[in-house]
Design a protein around this nucleic acid. Sequence first.
DNA 1: TCTTATACCGGTATTAGTATCACGGTCATG
DNA 2: CATGACCGTGATACTAATACCGGTATAAGA
Lengths: 89, 89
Amino acid sequence: MVRTPLTPEEHERGERLGAILREARGDRTMAEVAFAAGVSAETLRKIETGRAPTPAFFTVVALAAALGLSTDAIASAAAAAPLREPLSA
Amino acid sequence: MVRTPLTPEEHERGERLGAILREARGDRTMAEVAFAAGVSAETLRKIETGRAPTPAFFTVVALAAALGLSTDAIASAAAAAPLREPLSA
DNA sequence: TCTTATACCGGTATTAGTATCACGGTCATG
DNA sequence: CATGACCGTGATACTAATACCGGTATAAGA
């Protein structure tokens, strides 16, 4: 095996990451946030829906900047248990 | 065009990211830090040498945790970096 | 009804990340 | 010189991320 397939835990972590980003997006459109972050809307949609569970580092950084979030907060929130409260901005 | 190849700027950003991680590693070995972060030593080597300019988000998060760094600090330092730019000529 | 906007889904194409293996170089030791 | 540890490079294998396309569904508005 050369590259280990993503584990179920990693998929769940990706789902939490997507939920955090979607929560922070609020009522803005995917296209707007994606354009602000410099990624395609499809990519943002895949990340939000958890279908891209381990996006690139700078992709998350750009999205965090576009959403006004801290990457540390995103990382800890996605890695740890699901949040009861959104990362209030 | 389905997936844009990495631009020279992204490669340079990857080199700065690698330099930051190597700087934080200090005198510890690659194998030690890689094991602590849960990645292979070869992966850490590629990231440090800039041969993997856009690693996965959680890979950088794990390395940052193993090195005691903030992902926000890494992101900002790698994004806007005072790398010695010839640029003259 | 028709149009528009938004989001989700499936497929496809291409590049990149991750991991393993093998080999070579350097340096410090014996 | 020999050995070992560490770093580096190259090749190879396989999966995942990214992007573009077409289609579908829903809701709001003219």
